[in-house]
Design a binder for these strands. Sequence first.
DNA 1: TTACGTGCAAACGTTTTGCACAAAC
DNA 2: GTTTGTGCAAAACGTTTGCACGTAA
Lengths: 150, 150
Amino acid sequence: MATNDYKNILEMLENSGLRATRARKIILELLAEKNRHFTPEEMLEALRERGQPLSIATLYQNLARLVEKGLVIKIVGLDGSFRYDFNHDPHDHMICSRCGKIVDVVVKGSLEGISAQPMDAEDDLTNWKILEKRVEFVGLCPECQAAEQN
Amino acid sequence: MATNDYKNILEMLENSGLRATRARKIILELLAEKNRHFTPEEMLEALRERGQPLSIATLYQNLARLVEKGLVIKIVGLDGSFRYDFNHDPHDHMICSRCGKIVDVVVKGSLEGISAQPMDAEDDLTNWKILEKRVEFVGLCPECQAAEQN
DNA sequence: TTACGTGCAAACGTTTTGCACAAAC
DNA sequence: GTTTGTGCAAAACGTTTGCACGTAA
């Protein structure tokens, strides 16, 4: 991680009104530098390996605060597990249905023409306020395609 | 539920190779007749109210078997909770970001022109095998829009 | 009659909480 | 000096499992 990024992390914390504690700094550093979507368990492991161990309670408490302040986003895997992402720009996800890996993607092509209509006649969608159209690409990553051969 | 539906449930179980037990019948009846996406907890509650109580172990065991046989589908809410849906035709979902309600929808417009490209240069998506493009409409249901006013 | 399903209670993995001590401001 | 964060241990939560008994075919 470049020096710039570290300054950015301090700034982000400052701007969000959160104190710049050790826990928050190492969590953000980890997410900022690795191109991955960690589960809480994976974060604990990764931080332990770096010689920056963190207690599980502190991790969960801080992830909740960081999500609340918008510094980190929380996403749900196909299996219901939670993963965290530093990526702030609007984006969608490509998910491996076998191993759960998630890769950030941008959608090519317009979603303008896409709309929803109810499947069941008794549902009325006209009074919903649509905030977002998310596209999830579900597939098999190269590693899992190889594993499926066996 | 019409008599026809009940026969269909028996047939579905027969065709899937699963025995037609009390637990499976009442679970499928509930899902078939209600236009809802139940969490396991909600199913237990609904069945209790109908005078058809079921043990939690049996519910989970059977949901797993029914999903495995394709009679029921399992979906994950925005908050990571599991919900179950009587499996009909392929469809997408409209989800309320405030209360978690899920409504089945069909997408109008083609997804043909929609593709994914990696956000991070180091990700290569060319060797993924894409199985599905899912669209999730996230918004506020009428009830939650009213509640947000306060 | 035999294989399979059910329900209880116990175990499990993940997430949350209460609280004393420590660090940030 | 005051407010906020940390880490431990315990609790809570949703889900799964082992096992004795019951039911479907």
